[in-house]
């Protein structure tokens, strides 16, 4: 037996198999390395470019980092770059969208995964997936053409004048629609993954189906649902094209009035990017750093929130 094995191990066939394995292993390693290198390259590049305006000796005049971070005015024409209010605006519009979208998405997911008859559930899931695949510029065109009109008319009914509907409310509604499929899809997957046993246990203890759905299914699926919320929020913060079509790009802030125009970090980075040079170009990388930090912090805080919801029960 042993000799058979060692014979095989010395055979050409075995050696070529080992070589093949090694070859593929190194290919996988290389691609993993390459993709992780990308992240490092991007972060380093943005850090270097974005911190440049705040380092002494910057060719277009060094900026004060603190003033940049807490500034309440952003005017290229006067050379004033403050993103403090833009961060607040970004947070308001992102979390506002999440506030509208999250309950709707979770309830839809519960309906599709647990309540709806199979055919209806399949059809609705397809609809959600379709929504997720619509490109953001199409959402933008839709928002600029119809959400703004709705907001404008709503404003007119309340006798509030809006800038043709471009407003914080329009941004929130647009983002709510855009992040809805992301949250719903993830919530559906995680609700479907809840083991039948614990549902049966709950029902056997005398809980109604609704009680079971809310108190057992949703709490067991919370990890996936919150992952969806985090992804959705990431999309809301990161969406640039569609948002800049309805935001109105206010020069100062922050904006708390739903019917007033606003300015988000992404729309600030995008607007006029292709036609500009000098500090106005470099400062967009600084805004990019701020955006990455904002997303990081909000993801961490949602994770904290998730852990707290679990442990209270």
């Amino acid at each position: 037996m042993r000799t058979e094995l060692s014979k095989y191990k010395n055979s050409k066939r075995y050696k070529s198999k080992i070589r093949q394995d090694l070859f593929f292993k190194s290919i996988f390693q290389l691609s993993a390395l390459l993709s992780s290198m990308m992240i490092v390259i991007i972060i380093v590049f943005i850090l270097v470019k974005g911190l440049q305006p705040f380092i002494a000796g910057y060719q277009y005049g060094t900026r004060n980092f603190f003033e940049f971070l807490v500034g309440l005015v952003y005017r290229q024409d006067q050379g004033i770059y403050g993103v403090g209010f833009i961060v607040v605006n970004t947070l308001i519009s992102g979390f506002g969208a999440l506030l509208i979208s999250f309950p709707l998405a979770v309830l839809t997911a519960l309906f599709i995964a647990k309540i709806a008859p199979k055919r209806l559930a399949d059809a609705m899931q397809t609809v959600v997936e379709l929504l997720a695949s619509i490109p953001s510029v199409v959402y933008g065109v839709f928002a600029a053409g119809s959400i703004t009109v709705m907001v404008k008319n709503l404003g007119a009914m309340l006798s509030i004048q809006t800038a043709g509907g471009s407003s914080l409310l329009a941004v929130m509604l647009l983002l709510a629609i855009m992040i809805y499929p992301t949250i719903t899809s993830l919530a559906i997957t995680s609700i479907q993954a809840v083991p039948e046993d614990i549902q049966h246990a709950s029902l056997a203890l005398g809980a109604t189906t609704t009680q079971t759905n809310f108190k057992v299914v949703l709490t067991s699926a919370k990890s996936g649902i919150f992952a969806g919320a985090i992804l959705g929020l990431g999309r809301a913060f990161g969406e640039a094209t569609a948002v800049s079509m309805v935001a109105g790009n206010k020069l100062f802030g922050p904006t708390f009035n739903l019917f007033d125009i606003t300015r988000t970090l992404t729309s600030t980075i995008l607007t006029g990017l292709k036609e500009t040079t000098g500090v106005d170009y470099d400062i967009r990388f600084s805004a990019g750093i701020v955006l990455m930090i904002v997303i990081l912090i909000s993801n961490l805080s949602i994770n904290l929130l998730k852990n707290r919801i679990g442990s209270q029960k």
Partner: peptide, 25 residues
């Protein structure tokens, strides 16, 4: 300088869209 309440648009075409949607523009 330009009034601070100005609304920024992204292109010449965007300008046309926004002003044609706003009676007060």
């Amino acid at each position: 300088p330009l009034t601070a309440s100005a609304i920024e648009v992204t292109s010449a075409a965007d300008m046309a869209t926004k002003v044609s949607a706003d009676e007060n523009g």
